[in-house]
Design a protein around this nucleic acid. Structure first.
Length: 596
DNA sequence: TTAGGGTTAG
């Protein structure tokens, strides 16, 4: 992928490859139709601060006769554009007191303010207010309310409203409204219904646009269904003759990066070049992030230089990815260089940047430095989010500071931050690793049927914690619980359980589970084999060692350092035959051969 | 001649 990008750079002059779309539509070469002379900016468009707006409102309300509803609407819109939503609503209330006339436009603006503040219920109240004054809602009014419901994740309500509008003929949805509904469905993970909506809108004579497709393509990519996304892409381009844009490509590139399908990434980059769609700051950031996650921070730096050469400035997101890359490699001094670079470019690190750094320090067990950063976030007027808190809590647990971790957990909740799945796992793991398995188990039971408890990783943490502290019976119960909950154990769960059996000398149970996991469609990995091997060695079950080693050789697995040391102990003690050394030699990773 | 959505990156 990196090579492809560099190649594109070299061939910068680029050649135009004909694309079916260029022939059918020729829109790439069409002349701009927006050459009309710009109107001078009106007084309302010139307002950029709230004080001026309020002053103007005051003047307007003192005029005799009162200015028109249009003028008031424009002022209200100006305030809304400044994101001063509650202020807009306040002005609307005053307008009513002063008997300034309002119309459908005014109502829509005010409803939008309610929705943007996640107070869609109040938006509906404004709708009712309109009804009382014979101001009838239209597709804009309903579109705004629908968007409000989507913003609040009230997808069922949104669907109900959408269906009602069609069924009762209250308004015929347009592309904007369909796109909003599609966005909601995708957010809710309902890609299939979203795709069905494309057909519905088409059938009702409303043409989907590039945003319609981009929304679903992105959602499919996020759900790792990149091939479905590509199919939809083809449908959009070749059947609907809708041109993709940089957003379409960004979603696809991101999807393929996440799956490490670099050839596909290269192809898409090449296609963008062929189609003369310029890469933007998002595209570059996606690539920088992907390279950093692969540990290729140097290449990521090259991409950043490349984008700068091409006149696109890296932003906070771009640099945060780079910081994350250095953190992953534990190169914290490099992160300071990046921070200085950011500052020199006037970029202010945000809470995500800080969370990355915090994570870096915590991974290196430099928890004091992490704590300093944590406090810096608040000092700088930013608010730590769930990720920041979870990262810090994990770091504290790792260095055995469970008490402070607890305090932070409570502080987080006091700030109305709701712990997520990750937080929950961190807490359970932290408790288990700090000799507080009982607390972990009580927390788990306290959560009862919560969906967080229907998670295989949560179970694995607890099974591991219980079996490590001699509570194998509890571990067994938890493991059997998986069946009841229809949860499929993954390879880690099996490894942890097999390890638990071995620890208690129950090699027979361990072997049985080892055989069963494959039957259940979960292939044992290198760790499983090492765990079982160690179990056999520690429990003097030496007759199957050679067979297991041969199996590992056949599967291309390797023996880890502690297994090797155990094997050698047995050979020294002559409980295992020295002829095994040759086989063991083949199973030791290259860098470990010297140890033999 | 005043209203709604707008999809993508850490």
């Amino acid at each position: 992928m990196f090579a492809a990008l560099m190649a594109i750079q070299k061939n910068g002059a680029s050649f135009i490859v004909s694309h079916p779309l260029n022939k059918s539509k020729g829109r790439f070469h069409s002349t701009s139709s927006s050459n009309r002379a710009k109107h001078p900016r009106s007084i309302f468009e010139q307002i950029t601060n709230l004080d001026d707006a309020l002053k103007l409102f005051d003047e307007m309300t003192h005029k005799q006769p009162l200015p028109s509803v249009v003028k008031f609407s424009r002022l209200l819109q100006a305030v809304t554009k400044m994101k001063q939503y509650s202020c807009s609503i306040e002005l609307f209330k005053q307008m009513n007191l002063l008997c300034v006339p309002v119309n459908a436009y005014t109502i829509s603006i005010v409803i939008r303010c309610c929705c943007q503040m996640h107070r869609t219920g109040e938006g509906f109240a404004v709708l009712g207010y309109g009804f009382k004054r014979d101001i009838l809602p239209n597709v804009c009014t309903f579109g705004t309310l629908l968007n409000g419901l989507v913003l609040e994740d009230r997808i069922l309500k949104a669907e109900k409203l959408f269906k009602k509008l069609i069924k009762e003929g209250l308004c015929e949805p347009n592309a904007i409204m369909y796109n909003t509904m599609i966005k909601g469905l995708c957010r809710f993970g309902n890609n299939d219904t979203a795709i069905a909506l494309i057909k519905l809108m088409d059938g009702r004579g409303c043409k989907p646009d590039v945003v319609t497709y981009n929304t679903i393509i992105d959602s499919l990519c996020k759900d790792k269904m990149v091939d479905d996304a590509l199919n939809l892409f083809n449908e959009m381009v070749f059947h609907k003759h809708i041109l993709p844009n940089v957003v379409t490509y960004n979603s696809l590139i991101h999807g393929f990066c996440n799956l490490r399908r670099w050839d596909d990434v290269s192809n898409l980059l090449k296609e963008m070049e062929d189609e003369r769609i310029s890469l933007d700051v998002h595209t570059y950031s996606i690539l920088v992030d992907a390279l950093c996650k692969e540990g290729k921070v140097e290449d990521a730096n090259c991409i950043i230089n490349l984008m700068i050469e091409r006149g696109i400035n890296p932003n906070v997101v771009t640099y945060s990815s780079l910081i994350d890359g250095y953190c992953l490699r534990g190169e914290m001094s490099k992160t300071r260089e990046v921070l200085n670079l950011m500052r020199s470019q006037g970029l202010v690190p945000d809470v995500v940047t800080y969370s990355s750094l915090l994570n870096g320090y915590c991974k290196k067990l430099m928890v004091e430095e992490a704590m300093d950063l944590f406090h810096e976030i608040t000092k700088k007027g930013m608010k730590p989010n769930v990720i920041t808190y979870s990262t810090m809590i994990q770091g504290l647990f790792r260095v055995g500071r469970g008490k402070v971790a607890h305090e932070l957990f409570h502080e987080m909740q006091a700030h109305n931050l709701i712990p997520n799945e990750c937080t929950y796992k961190i807490i359970l793991e932290g408790l288990c690793n700090n000799n507080q398995v009982d607390e972990a188990l009580s927390l788990f039971h306290l959560m009862g049927g919560n969906k967080l408890n229907s998670n295989i990783k949560v179970y694995t943490i607890l099974i591991d914690g219980a079996s490590r502290t001699g509570k194998l019976d509890v571990a067994r119960v938890l493991f059997n619980d998986l069946n009841v909950k229809c949860l499929q154990p993954d390879v880690r769960t099996y490894n942890v359980m097999i390890n638990g059996f071995c620890r208690e000398g129950l090699v027979g149970d361990a072997k049985e589970l080892f055989l069963k996991m494959e039957e259940k469609g979960c292939l044992p990995n290198s760790v499983t084999h090492n765990v079982l091997l160690q179990g056999f060695l520690k429990n003097q079950q030496l007759d199957t060692i050679e067979m297991l080693l041969l199996e590992m050789e056949g599967k291309g697995f390797s023996v880890d350092a502690s297994t090797v040391s155990l094997l050698l102990d047995h050979i020294k003690a002559r409980s295992l035959d020295a002829s095994l050394l040759k086989l063991i030699g083949k199973l030791v990773p290259k860098e470990g051969v010297d140890a033999l």
